[in-house]
């Protein structure tokens, strides 16, 4: 078969795929909204450990065994502060339990559409956020010296 026959067959397949497996409209809408998460005023806290990434060079081993498989521990580092995040299913949503290693003055959970929810941090640097929606989220916090920090995006 010639190159042209191949191209024609490929074009047919592309047309069929657009019919049976199209990009859902919500995916494009969400993509458009993602630009609302652009800010130029913060430092990025990098992911330094994720229990879901066994063998990827990050610090934690995967948590294994019955029951343990449902909890996930992540650590971010930025603005001179580390934050540990524990994700666990709670009801139909997700509970996020966190711990800062240094003082912070504000904290929020941001969603991929630009929305966010403020979270109270106690005097020991601990916080809990319930009802975290599915999809990518990140934390925003302000360090003691006033530096605004956002973590890299994480997908529960």
């Amino acid at each position: 078969m010639s190159e042209r026959d191949d191209d024609a067959l490929m074009a047919e397949l592309r047309r069929i795929a657009a019919e049976v497996d199209p990009v859902p409209p919500g995916v494009l809408e969400a993509a458009r909204a993602a630009i609302a998460t652009r800010h130029l005023d913060h430092e990025l806290a990098e992911l330094v450990a994720d229990s879901a990434d066994a063998g990827s060079g990050l610090l934690f081993e995967a948590v294994r065994g019955p029951g343990a498989a449902e909890s996930r521990l992540l650590t971010f580092d930025g603005g001179g502060v580390q934050v540990d995040v524990d994700l666990e299913p709670a009801g139909s949503g997700l509970r996020l339990i966190g711990q800062f290693t240094g003082p912070v003055t504000e904290c929020g959970v941001e969603r991929g559409d630009g929305g966010s929810v403020e979270v109270d941090v106690d005097e020991l640097g601990r916080f809990v956020a319930d009802g975290v929606p599915p999809g990518p989220i990140r934390l925003r916090y302000r360090s003691e010296i006033g530096q605004l920090v956002r973590t890299a995006w994480l997908v529960p």
Partner: peptide, 29 residues
Amino acid sequence: WAVARSMRLSEADAADAVQTTWLRLVEAL
């Protein structure tokens, strides 16, 4: 979308992965 479906992700997982990729682009822009 084609990458996700080529790697056999379900629709819901594909949607999350696509959105996360856009967010990482905004972050890295």
